[in-house]
Amino acid sequence: MTKQPVQQAPSVNFEAMTLKDAIDLAVLIEEEARDRYEELAAQLILHRTPAAANFFTKMVRIEELHRSQLLEQRRKQFGDQPVTVRREMIFDVEAPDYDEARMNMTQRQALEVALRSEQKAHKFFVSVLANVQNPEVRRLFEELCDEELEHQQLVKAEMAKLPPPGPHDHVDVGDGPAPQ
């Protein structure tokens, strides 16, 4: 494996990638994002940060929806042919970084996390497309790339619905951590 500091270090050969593998990879990317949101939601529930937790739970559903749509497409085109790509090949493509979560984060901050993640994913697909030759795979990744942009717009629209940020959003008035 390469040890480059770049987050989306491709450990898969995109140039020679088949459509089946590309779809499978996309499924895994959605899956990773879904699982990460689930984890972050669990962290925030445990740490009594419900508004952000609720939003992350919503993201779990959205990512799962994307995943199942891709799976459906895969089933139609490739049936139950074996999967050859592995989750270990990708890292945090659309999944928010672990250090994005904070106790007492606001709903707006949670939406900002999602926005950054969609931007990250978009960047990933852009960088990958530079190497992809197979036209089918290109088409798939272009679609996904566009979707990420759409998602960004959706998140931004959500954010617009929220009351404007308060002057004390970043102030933590909670009890300090419990010594153990």
Binding site: Q43, H47, R86, E88, Y98, M105
Partner: peptide, 22 residues
């Protein structure tokens, strides 16, 4: 469920560990 604070570096370590083991 880990009791670590949200944002803790150990979450990433744990994830990396799972992957290395897999």
């Amino acid at each position: 469920k880990p009791i670590w604070c949200p944002g803790c570096g150990d979450f990433g370590v744990l994830q990396g560990l799972y992957r290395a083991l897999a």
